[in-house]
Design a protein around this nucleic acid. Sequence first.
DNA 1: GGTGAAAACCCCTGATC
DNA 2: GATCAGGGGTTTTCACC
Lengths: 156, 156
Amino acid sequence: MATDYQLDDFDREILRWVQRDARVTGEEIGASIGLSAAAVQRRLKQLRKVGVITAEVALVDPAAVGQVMTFIVGVELERERVDMLDAFRGAARADPNVQQCYYVTGEADFVLIVTAKDMDDFEAFTRRLLFDNANIRRFTTQVVMARDKVGSSVPV
Amino acid sequence: MATDYQLDDFDREILRWVQRDARVTGEEIGASIGLSAAAVQRRLKQLRKVGVITAEVALVDPAAVGQVMTFIVGVELERERVDMLDAFRGAARADPNVQQCYYVTGEADFVLIVTAKDMDDFEAFTRRLLFDNANIRRFTTQVVMARDKVGSSVPV
DNA sequence: GGTGAAAACCCCTGATC
DNA sequence: GATCAGGGGTTTTCACC
């Protein structure tokens, strides 16, 4: 696991850079923190290997690809049995409209971040994942009017 | 704006690739969809230029850098005045513990995805952003027990 | 263990068709 | 859009601390 990997200050600086922009060159990072480009690349390789960096991905503007709507859906299951939890998790993970899925304490059991092309698309999603599922007691929907901060930049 | 840019099937295939892995080579993408590497790069450049691809970033495992806890916080403002909304947005966006901030309809006004090193760190966050703010009526906290799906992969 | 320097390699870029 | 030549970034090797 990556949990026991000890970062030093150079690693943290590098992570701050690549969390903003993964295409920045090792040379530029190195110049800003006083390291050679090769050293930066070596550290990046290690950070990937040990799992501190889980992936390097392109972020796509949902509106630009026709996924103009975003919803936050709280889901409460009928019965909290492990097999039912796992079944729901699997279905949520596999659903293309589900961007994120959190298993939480509190009122809801799961919180989902969902995008959809339009209301019909969202309704199709709710039928698919929620209504046609006897194990779901109820769910709440919040419509996102503005995404003020996105991504998953972690403070390091 | 990027909203009026028309994607074709090649673009969509490319977006599926780079949303999973931004380091994949143009050659590999091209081979899988029947395009030359140069053509793929040209399309990627265009997708960046028009804003379909908003960024290419490294994803960091929060647990690996000591941010082991995740929370979902619903925030209800005292009065929904535009200047107060904007003030809160700005503060949330600037806060290092806030990973995501959504302005929503429904019970809450904002939904935040927050990470913290531990409960003390989270408490410090709530003081900083929530308690020391007369404009906040109340907030709810849900503790994330499992992050089943993360990132912001958009179906294209 | 770590770094920096240089060469080799690979990929991206731009020009051309 | 494809092909090819040129430039740039990454990766490896090596010597060094």
